[in-house]
Computed example of a mutant assay.
Amino acid sequence: MTTKIHLACDGQGRPLAVLLTAGQRHDGTCARPLLERIRVPRLGRGRPRCRPDHIVAEFEDGP
Rank of each mutant, 00 (worst) to 15 (best):
M1S: 15
M1G: 15
T2W: 15
T2H: 15
T2E: 14
T3M: 10
T3P: 07
K4R: 13
K4F: 02
K4M: 03
I5V: 12
I5H: 13
H6I: 00
A8V: 02
A8R: 06
C9F: 02
C9D: 03
D10N: 14
D10S: 07
G11N: 14
Q12R: 12
Q12T: 11
G13H: 02
R14H: 13
R14P: 05
R14L: 09
P15S: 08
A17G: 07
V18Y: 06
V18T: 14
L19H: 11
L19K: 08
L19G: 03
A22S: 12
Q24S: 15
Q24A: 14
R25Y: 05
R25K: 15
R25I: 04
H26V: 04
D27L: 05
D27N: 15
G28K: 14
G28I: 10
C30W: 02
C30E: 15
C30G: 07
C30P: 07
A31F: 12
A31C: 13
R32I: 07
P33H: 02
L34Q: 07
L35D: 03
L35S: 05
L35I: 03
E36D: 13
E36M: 06
E36A: 13
R37V: 01
R37Q: 13
R37K: 14
I38T: 01
V40W: 03
V40F: 01
P41D: 08
R42H: 02
R42N: 06
G44W: 02
G44A: 01
G44Q: 03
R45I: 03
G46L: 01
R47G: 03
C50V: 03
R51Y: 01
R51K: 09
P52D: 04
D53R: 11
D53N: 10
H54R: 14
I55C: 10
I55Q: 15
A57Y: 07
E58I: 05
F59A: 10
E60A: 10
E60V: 08
D61Y: 09
D61L: 11
D61M: 07
G62M: 05
